[in-house]
Amino acid sequence: MIGKLFGEKRLDFSKRVALTGEGIKKQGYLSILQGASIENVLVDNLATDHGRIISGNILNGKKIDKTGYVGFYHHQLTVIPEGGERRFMGWMEPGFKHWSFSHTYLSWLFPRKMYQFDTSLNGGVRPVMFNTYYDKVFPFDIMPVQLLKACIAEEVELMENLGIYEVTEEDFALCEVICPSKIEWQEIILKGLTLLKG
């Protein structure tokens, strides 16, 4: 935008947005104005009435209304089906249909299978128990669980020592996805970062 302002002497507020997700009939790219309402974009293009519209991607995007807008830093608009369907004895199913990072569901037998994702939490919130499980998806040389616990306890010195300055909340998105205890990782880390800002 700034480049165009000085190069072409033109104030251009348009941006290119990717329309993604299972809840959209026709995926693709779209040129919209910054801050424009997405209502017209999505009209006739929603595959489901009961969908969640996300400005950004599924890992760290922001949930918005049908009349909302794509955020300033986002270049993607995602719609996925809203979950909450209750399955009978879900914890005992063989689980061919359910994706899991661990091998606890039999879906590991089909590594190339495509899955339908919705927004179900798939479990109840519990204390963090599987402490070394997250290391597999966390890329940095930082101890994720210990940093999370320091953030919960608001131990500023420990947070600094464990490397809070080197991360943002979205680095923990994958930890949040695979978390068996269904902890809100990004929210907790964000709270910790806000605490440091003062």
Binding site: K62, K63, R86, M89, L121, N122, G124, C179, P180, Q186
Partner: peptide, 29 residues
């Protein structure tokens, strides 16, 4: 209730999708 049916809660913020694993499944394993 949660033994018979999976919980109806959905994600609120942060990651919008979650793994199918939960503590019940782990204990079952």
């Amino acid at each position: 209730d949660t033994l018979l049916l999976t919980p109806k809660e959905t994600t609120k913020m942060g990651s919008h999708i979650r793994d199918s694993i939960d503590n019940k499944r782990i204990m079952m394993t």
